[in-house]
Write a protein that binds this DNA or RNA. Structure first.
Length: 186
DNA sequence: TATACGATCACCT
DNA sequence: GGTGATCGTATAC
């Protein structure tokens, strides 16, 4: 079952729980298919979250968080990396879930090529590595998560068996008291 | 118009 | 464990 607008049009603190163990699919411009199981996320939530890009208000970069849910928010960091987010929560309520890690399923050959590595365990297990492996960049900004756009999330009826771990988010200097990073071990 | 810095990673010791 | 790479964005002037 493909996850639709109703799935993302909810509180981020609810969406993340159901997003773990879902399958992320991305088919690139040459119809090459990538996919993987989402196993680590972080939540960025208005308005009480100082670490969120949306905290200080709407800007050209973050406006997709304000104006949509069920869409892609890609941003560029540290001069060389991209990070992938899904927007959540109703329009004008900016929320996003950062996809920090997936367990690769389809397209592993090309992921290895894109990342210039032979190390499987090092392939898609951090946000910027994930984008390198799948060649995700700002061209996906504001795309809707649906099959027509060849980028979507899918419920494949995995039952969560592994305990979910909560932890402070990574690489931020503000709002470190929030345990809004969630993941499970492979 | 100028400046400082970040939701990071790879490579070095 | 420490550091350099590298540039879009926000913010200050």
């Amino acid at each position: 079952m493909i996850l639709n607008s109703d799935f993302f049009n909810r509180d981020s603190l609810i969406v993340w729980k159901e997003l773990l163990w879902k399958k992320f699919n991305f088919i690139d411009s040459s119809w090459y298919k990538f996919s993987g199981i989402i196993n680590e996320v972080e939540i960025y939530k208005w308005t009480e979250d100082e670490a969120s890009h949306a905290y200080t208000g709407k800007t050209p970069r973050n406006k997709v968080m304000f104006e949509t849910f069920w869409h892609i928010y890609v941003y560029f960091v540290y001069g060389m990396y991209n990070c992938l987010n899904f927007t959540t929560e109703k329009t004008w309520t900016p929320g996003a879930i950062l996809i920090r890690s997936i367990i690769p399923i389809d397209g592993i050959e090309k992921m290895l090529q894109n990342r210039k590595t032979k190390n499987l365990s090092n392939l898609t297990n951090w946000p910027a590595k994930l984008c390198q492996a799948l060649w995700i960049d700002k061209s996906l900004y504001w795309k809707k998560l649906c099959t027509k756009n060849k980028i979507f999330t899918e419920d494949i009826n995995y039952k969560i068996k592994t305990p979910i771990l909560e932890w402070p988010r990574i690489g931020i200097s503000k709002a470190q008291d929030k345990n809004w990073r969630f993941w499970f071990k492979n």
